[in-house]
């Protein structure tokens, strides 16, 4: 028995070593950095150990802006994209013939580069001296006032960011949900039909519970993905996100490390630890909620 155990550990050693070096060590390192006060990366020295870095970050208006942006982004895009994806997948699975065509169309954004797509969005929304941008032309057509979506008011920029994020994550969610819907056994629907089940009830009592594990998966990964948003904002608003009021937590961390105000690994680490705590909390809440509503 003991010998077997030893052997098992031995077999697992390469994987464990790999995980340790590339996952656990950096994680611990981040925690350590976040506690070292006044760390100087050139001389690799620090003054003391404490929670000062956290205090600084939590009082930094740029961080608070990034926190607010990230939360708005998460709370709007996760439910919206999941709900939209569900609606579209339902529509797709009821039109058998168009299914494969639609799947390709909706999947295009997923295989297209984020930055390229961001550029396209910029062209759609941006107001330049030469052109109003396609969206503004539309707004004008319907009698509205032009809005500067890229450098204009906060809500306009947030709208573009949310719109963009939903658009980017939608195809993957649609793909997952259409295959989840397709995997529900036709016999359940037949049985429900014989028993005169109204359509809405079929959806809420049969379809939804049957695909609930997949919805749950999408919500969890959606939350985590949205909390880690960064490249989308860069693609739309350029690299100086603090000035644009469009920074996200990950963006803030990056700026603290390499940006114009960069060179502060301790503050960056403190922000990373805060992000970690937030994601952990949200995931735990998700798990608790799911226990009641997800049927495996």
């Amino acid at each position: 028995m003991k010998k077997n155990n030893l052997k098992a550990w031995l077999y697992m050693l390469p994987a464990l070593a790999f995980l340790g070096v590339f996952l656990v060590y950096p994680l611990i390192d981040v925690f350590i950095y976040s506690l070292e006060e006044g760390y100087n990366s050139a001389s690799q020295t620090f003054f003391g150990v404490g929670l000062y870095n956290f205090g600084y970050v939590l009082r930094d208006p740029y961080f608070l802006q990034a926190l607010k942006n990230t939360f708005i982004l998460v709370m709007i895009t996760v439910p919206l994209s999941t709900g939209l994806a569900l609606l579209i997948s339902l529509a797709l699975s009821s039109v058998k013939k168009l299914k494969s065509l639609f799947q390709t169309i909706y999947f295009l954004p997923y295989v297209t580069n984020t930055l390229a797509v961001g550029l396209v969005f910029m062209i759609l929304f941006k107001k330049t001296p030469y052109s109003e941008g396609l969206v503004n032309l539309l707004i004008n057509f319907f009698g509205g006032q032009s809005v500067d979506f890229i450098t204009g008011p906060y809500w306009a920029k947030m709208f573009v960011l949310c719109f963009y994020t939903v658009w980017v994550v939608l195809p993957f969610k649609i793909l997952i949900l259409t295959s989840a819907l397709a995997s529900v056994d036709q016999h359940y629907y037949d049985a429900a039909r014989v028993d005169a089940t109204p359509r809405w009830r079929v959806f809420t009592r049969i379809t939804l519970p049957m695909i609930s594990p997949m919805i749950f998966y999408l919500v969890i990964t959606g939350f985590i993905g949205a909390f880690k948003a960064y490249s989308d904002a860069v693609a739309l608003f350029g690299t100086d996100l603090n000035a644009a009021e469009m920074n996200t937590i990950v963006g803030y961390i990056y700026d603290m490390l390499y940006g114009n105000s960069g060179g502060y690994p301790s503050y960056a680490s403190a922000a990373a630890v805060i992000l970690f705590a937030i994601v952990l909390t949200i995931t735990c809440i998700n798990l608790i909620v799911s226990r009641k509503h997800v049927h495996y």
Partner: peptide
Amino acid sequence: PEKRGVGMVFQHYALY
């Protein structure tokens, strides 16, 4: 089917 008043037992039961 819903108007015929039939009870059906499917081969794989189709219990929810």
